[in-house]
Amino acid sequence: MMQATSTLRSMDVVPTTPRYDDDGLAANRVLGGDIDAFESIVERWQGPLVNLAYRYCRNRGEAEEMAQEAFMKIFKGLGKWRQDSRFSTWLYAVAANHYRSAMRRRRPVWADMETIEQLVPGGDRSQEVDKTSQAEAIRRAVASLPPKYRDVTVLYYFQDEDLAETSRIMSLPPGTVKARLHRARKMLETKLSTLLQTSPLQEAHQ
């Protein structure tokens, strides 16, 4: 069972004693032949990349596998990082691009509305369980969106609702990101209309 302790923001995961505090310095060391310097990058970014992968696939084992592959792509493509842009932007762009490809190869298990409906609260369960089920149903519904809406939604919320950073990572104009987000929300509302109408979250909020 996954360890869900708090909410994640992309920059929340604190690295564990990396050798190089600066990603640029570590990257230059790696490019200069010091392979071990890459460990600093892995240690610093393992949390965010595994969590971003998890938001795509909703499976812990698969998320780690996807993140590991993303790190390999980052290692091999380190020379392509133009140092005038932020390392994190480039890193997320490489990872998101890889996750998108990995998801295309996968069976679309999340596109099944029946699965989502099964997660809609039943009459005899507690409200706490219902809330968890609803949250899970919403996250699965996001994963079932068409890729271009799913990617924007996943990255936008992962990046702490930072529209500018999301647009940089996706190499899309902010207006396009905004439009896709709007469309994604409409699609989610339509998909989850029955769920949201009976939501204890809403009841608790009122």
């Binding site: 994640l8 595994v50 969590n51 949250a135 989850l192 939501s199």
Partner: peptide
């Protein structure tokens, strides 16, 4: 609700040997 839930996605911790595996 959608915004609130998606903003509060749970954190998963990578396995203890994840970094070692990658390296």
């Amino acid at each position: 609700d959608i915004d609130r839930i998606l903003s509060a996605d749970p954190v998963i911790e990578p396995s203890a040997n994840f970094a070692a595996r990658v390296m």
